[in-house]
């Protein structure tokens, strides 16, 4: 996200960070998490899982730990947890 100037409180705001975990063999490749991730963290991978679908893979470190993918995934195949030390 680009701002026209640096926000005055940017030094005080704590941004949460998360790490996405994907349980690849549960995925049925519906693409909900990839399409609706607000930070566009995910993309389809080239490889196949045990069921023959392309599971998502993490493409960048922008995850904010909003848990939306976890809530939207119909297969209980993706979740995020807080990441510290960044």
């Amino acid at each position: 996200m680009k701002y026209w100037r640096v926000p005055l409180d940017s030094g005080e705001i704590q941004i949460t960070r998360g790490r996405v975990h994907i349980i690849e063999d549960r995925c049925k490749g519906c693409g909900y998490c990839i399409e609706y991730c607000p930070r566009e963290v995910l993309e389809f991978s080239k490889k196949f899982n045990a069921k023959g679908y392309h599971p998502p893979q993490v493409k960048n470190e922008d995850c904010l730990n909003c848990h939306y993918c976890e809530l939207l995934c119909p297969e209980f195949a993706i979740y995020s947890e807080a990441a510290f030390g960044q």
């Binding site: 049925k28 519906c30 909900y32 939207l72 995934c73 119909p74 297969e75």
Partner: peptide
Amino acid sequence: IPHIWCPGCGIGSVFTS
């Protein structure tokens, strides 16, 4: 699990909610 709902079906999401 895996449940019977098709890939792309929304019932799993409602169930998760």
